[in-house]
Simulated assay, not measured.
Amino acid sequence: MKTIKILGTGCPKCKQTESIIKDVIAKVGIEVEVIKVEDIQQIMQYNVLSTPAIVVDEVVKMNGKVPTNREVITLLS
């Protein structure tokens, strides 16, 4: 099972990213663990300078923007 971490301190873009990811997972019907990381110390461990950021299986895949549905599907492939 894949693990997706959404890195962000709770800003509107971070919340939107979380919503999009959960919607895509529900539509596609795959099993994915979604973890929201809001602690700045934990976020800094990923060397991310801008949020929201998406980490898939401990690899930073995207940061600094809200993904589209299509981008999320690509990240999960």
Rank of each mutant, 00 (worst) to 15 (best):
M1G: 14
M1L: 11
K2A: 11
K2D: 07
K2T: 12
T3C: 10
T3G: 05
T3W: 06
T3N: 13
I4Y: 00
K5D: 05
K5W: 07
K5E: 13
K5I: 06
K5N: 06
I6A: 02
I6M: 04
I6F: 06
G8L: 04
G8T: 06
T9M: 10
T9P: 08
G10P: 07
C11D: 10
C11P: 08
C11K: 12
C11I: 09
C11R: 09
P12Y: 09
P12F: 11
P12K: 11
P12D: 12
K13Y: 11
K13C: 08
K15D: 11
E18H: 09
E18A: 13
S19T: 14
S19M: 14
I20W: 08
K22M: 12
K22H: 12
D23H: 12
D23Q: 14
V24W: 02
I25D: 06
K27M: 10
V28E: 13
G29F: 10
I30V: 14
I30L: 12
I30R: 12
I30P: 07
V32T: 15
E33G: 10
E33M: 11
E33P: 06
V34E: 09
V34D: 11
I35N: 11
K36G: 05
K36H: 15
K36M: 14
V37F: 07
V37Y: 04
V37A: 09
E38N: 12
D39A: 11
I40V: 13
I40K: 13
I40H: 08
Q41H: 10
I43L: 05
I43N: 01
I43F: 05
M44W: 10
M44K: 12
M44N: 14
M44R: 12
Q45D: 15
Q45F: 11
Q45N: 14
Q45T: 14
Q45S: 13
Y46H: 08
N47R: 14
N47W: 08
N47Y: 11
V48Q: 07
V48L: 10
V48G: 05
V48H: 03
V48S: 08
V48E: 02
L49P: 10
L49R: 14
L49Q: 13
L49K: 14
S50T: 15
S50D: 10
T51W: 02
T51M: 02
T51V: 15
P52N: 06
P52H: 05
A53P: 01
A53K: 01
I54H: 00
I54L: 02
I54F: 00
V55S: 05
V55K: 02
V55R: 03
V56L: 01
V56M: 00
D57E: 09
E58Y: 08
E58V: 07
E58S: 15
E58P: 01
E58M: 10
V60W: 04
M62S: 05
M62Y: 04
N63V: 01
N63F: 15
N63K: 10
G64F: 03
G64T: 08
P67S: 10
P67F: 03
T68V: 05
N69E: 15
N69V: 01
R70I: 08
R70C: 04
E71C: 02
E71V: 01
E71R: 00
V72T: 05
V72S: 00
V72P: 00
V72I: 14
V72N: 02
V72C: 03
V72E: 00
I73G: 01
I73S: 03
T74P: 00
L75H: 01
L75R: 02
